[in-house]
Nucleic acid binder design. Sequence first.
RNA 1: GGGGGAGUAGCUCAAUGGUAGAGCAACGGCCUUUUAAGCCGCAGGUUCAGGGUUCGAGUCCCUGCUCCCCUACCA
Length: 572
Amino acid sequence: MRVRSCVSEQTNIESERVDESPELSEADIHRLELQRRENRDAVRMLGFNPYGQRSDALMTLAQAHAAFDEGADLENKESTQARKQAKRDTPDTPESELPAIVDQRPIVRVAGRVVLSRDNGKLIWLNLRDHTNDSFQIAVSKRDCDENGFKLAKLLDNGDIIIAQGPLTKTNTGEVTCWASTLEPASKCLVPPPEKRLGLQDPDARYRQRYIDMWSNPDTTRTLLLRSKLMSAMRRYLETNEFVEVETPVLQTQAGGAAAKPFFTHMNALHLDLSLRIAPELYLKRLLVGGMPRVFEVSRNFRNEGLDKSHNPEFTSLEVYQAFGNYETMLMLTEGLIQELAQLAASEQGISAAAMPFGEWLIDYEKPFEQITYAELFEKAMGFSMGDMDKVRDACAARGLKTKSEDGTPIADIFLVNELFEGVAEDLIDPARPTFVLDYPASLSPLTRPKAGTESDPVPLAERWDLFIGGMEIGPAYTELNDPDVQAQKFKEQLAGVDDEESTFRSFDEDFVNALKVGMPPAGGLGLGMDRLVMLLGNQRTIRDVLPFPMMKPLRPGPAATQEDESESSDH
RNA sequence: GGGGGAGUAGCUCAAUGGUAGAGCAACGGCCUUUUAAGCCGCAGGUUCAGGGUUCGAGUCCCUGCUCCCCUACCA
């Protein structure tokens, strides 16, 4: 099978060889890699370790660029010129009496990957890249650089990492440049890099070999760094509001808190089948029962479902619970949080939080977010009330939506309402305006407290909202249900009310009901899809672009399956 | 799940069924202010894999693999 990538099949061949013999046969190594290995050997012959060593007091390329001193550079150039002039005018003047060269130029020491090079013979131009600067120029002159450094420059390949040290100057064309006095290797790139201007284009190769994608397409690194900054700012915001971060089990005997298919695994020591969590919710609520007042968890969730541009099998959600709050306190918290994150993302990207580009839209995070109730939005879209079941059934039939499940039993009214809502009403939400949709039908939210005063309405409501931005559902919040009897009843209804395949993955969590019997304070709860939020604030089209290593189908079957077999057998 | 598209040199891409090419990278040479440096020279291929049609297949047909787009499903 062909692998369209820089590494090509060589790596695979190598790894196969490693199993049998640690020696690499030259015949198996690509000619371009062999050339680079020869250059590495030549660097060793100069007395360098091509893989470098610890280096303190390094500046980032952005810091180095900012350190340029225009006055010092001019003074240096003028004094050098004056000395040359004097030498020309009076060639007999002793060296010591010529005008002195003044050099107050700042000296910088920088590291980076070589992304471009122009060899003019006795003067070599290099462009370095790091996470702060896409292209910082180094000049390596035979006259001004130490001898080994100049020889090293002759042996460099694009992609190598080097350390340069020297004064900052401006070239004739006005570019701030480190005029190297020393040059050292820091690491060798044995793999031929992608095309120097276009970077790595093939999406498959970009996701599989992020380490190449990241330096050849600096936007990738910027997006991943933005993700880290947003996560960090999110924690600061919540901690400022007196929330504490907690960690709850990923391995669970029954995956709850959401309706999704879990991944399963096996624990040898206890001979126990376990699933990976689909949501942390039920454990976080147990912490509220125990007495933690405000908790949050940045939860990696695992759902054994499909992949597309907004779904990865493992994804990160933020869940927040606040004792004595409700869904309105969660709304204020969420709006404040997202506005703060948007401000940060905007300033990182040099744009305005009032007009953050996402796809074809400019999203305004500065104005207060829109609020509309589920019922209002439904009526606006359909022209009749969601309690009008005859019209709901007619509308479903007219749109060809199924009104009976596969075994012939009619689908509950409220699910028909929701199909219309998701199919029609959600499209009315302006993608450019973050919008809270409030008060969902109670039947759709079993873990939510019913909205007081609507119990006898045609469609009883629950204290729940959903936030939509850029056409995506970013997350829901609830006034949590804390009556154990109602909770037990809802679990039962939920198990009975869905078709067989789904009910396999829902369970009655007796210990959770027991926790509620102990008494959970009234509380607001929130879940935010962090990956989608980073997509929005970083203007990235797919969830893969905000994950460092998105799920990819392996090019050849991995060892995971056989390892599982081995562990089973070794256990007995 | 359904529909459409793609896979060719390390990378980015060409090639009516008729000798597989270019740019960049690499390699050899020249060059001390270049910016995608320039000039001269040289080399580089299991056309994703496996079948089939044909005098002849990168091209047409079938099967498989991987990716992309649209669509559907999915608290």
